[in-house]
């Protein structure tokens, strides 16, 4: 005699207290390996500098985990303080991935310096970061990264990435929770989109204002304005603004309070 259970067809009810067997044979993973830690980042370049900035709030859902979790890092520095670094990286999205990505790139850039006896160029570092991201194409680092530094000519360089390593060099870029709020502001204020020279013509003959690199102090103020505005409209952004300015003199870091609501 074969077992009673074995003879029972799948659809039949076994008993009152037994739940129906599901048709799926394979148990699905209910573990989701990502979370969104909110926050926003922003990078703008000038003729001889680059600025990377981010808010310092960390969130889980409606909770504020901490008001002081920096998102901008020095890459390839000589010690744990990041002293001597010539590249900046900002990461926003899933913070644990962001941290892992930062550590990995930092190690790569350090190894480059030990092996070749010279610091990695920003363009090489940018390509390396792309490779690191693409290596995990099928289990990506869930982050939007922005890389900043000075290129071979000493001009501000900024590279922005999607989570799987697609990247391009840009004049300015906003990423993260409030990117859709900040980016149009940047288009208008950095690249002078939708700005025309008054009286230069009518309709399509209107001449657009030509974009040119902005001075450092102007850009600093733009970054502050971008964030104070984003804080008003986005709940995941706030607490503090971390700004890193890279010039040929080195890296300057400033913290500015933002609203904590």
């Amino acid at each position: 005699m074969t077992s009673l259970m074995g003879n029972q067809s799948r659809g039949e009810t076994i008993g009152y207290s037994f739940s129906e067997p599901t048709s799926a044979n394979v148990k699905q993973h209910s573990f989701y390996p990502y979370t969104d830690n909110g926050g926003s980042t922003l990078g703008i370049t000038g003729s001889d500098f680059a600025i990377l900035a981010g808010d310092t709030r960390s969130t889980s859902g409606y909770n504020i985990n901490s008001r002081m979790v920096p998102k901008v890092f020095r890459i390839g520095g000589d010690d744990e303080t990041g002293e001597g670094a010539q590249v900046l990286l900002s990461v926003v999205g899933f913070a644990a991935d962001g941290n892992a990505l930062k550590e990995k790139l930092d190690t790569m850039v350090k190894m480059y310096k030990y092996k070749h006896g010279k610091p990695m160029s920003v363009s090489a570092c940018a390509q390396r970061l792309s490779t690191i991201l693409y290596e995990k194409r099928f289990f990506p680092y869930y982050v939007h990264a922005i890389l900043a530094g000075l290129d071979e000519e000493g001009v501000g360089a900024l590279y922005s990435y999607d989570p799987v390593g697609s990247y391009e060099r840009e004049q300015c870029r906003a990423a993260g929770a409030a990117s859709s709020l900040i980016m149009p502001f940047l288009d208008n204020q950095v690249n002078f989109k939708n700005q025309y020279i008054p009286g230069s013509g009518a309709g399509h003959a209107l001449e657009a204002v030509k974009a040119e690199p902005l001075p450092k102090d102007t850009v600093k103020q733009l970054v502050r304005d971008a964030f104070t505005s984003a804080v008003e409209r986005h709940i995941e952004v706030g607490d503090g603004l971390q700004m890193m300015i890279i010039t040929k003199e080195g890296i300057e870091e400033v913290f500015i309070p933002l609203k904590q609501d």
């Binding site: 830690n37 901490s66 002081m68 979790v69």
Partner: peptide
């Protein structure tokens, strides 16, 4: 400082 099952960390 805090750490969770995803590896997320923060301090306050």
């Amino acid at each position: 400082s805090s750490a969770d099952l995803l590896g997320t960390t923060f301090s306050a």
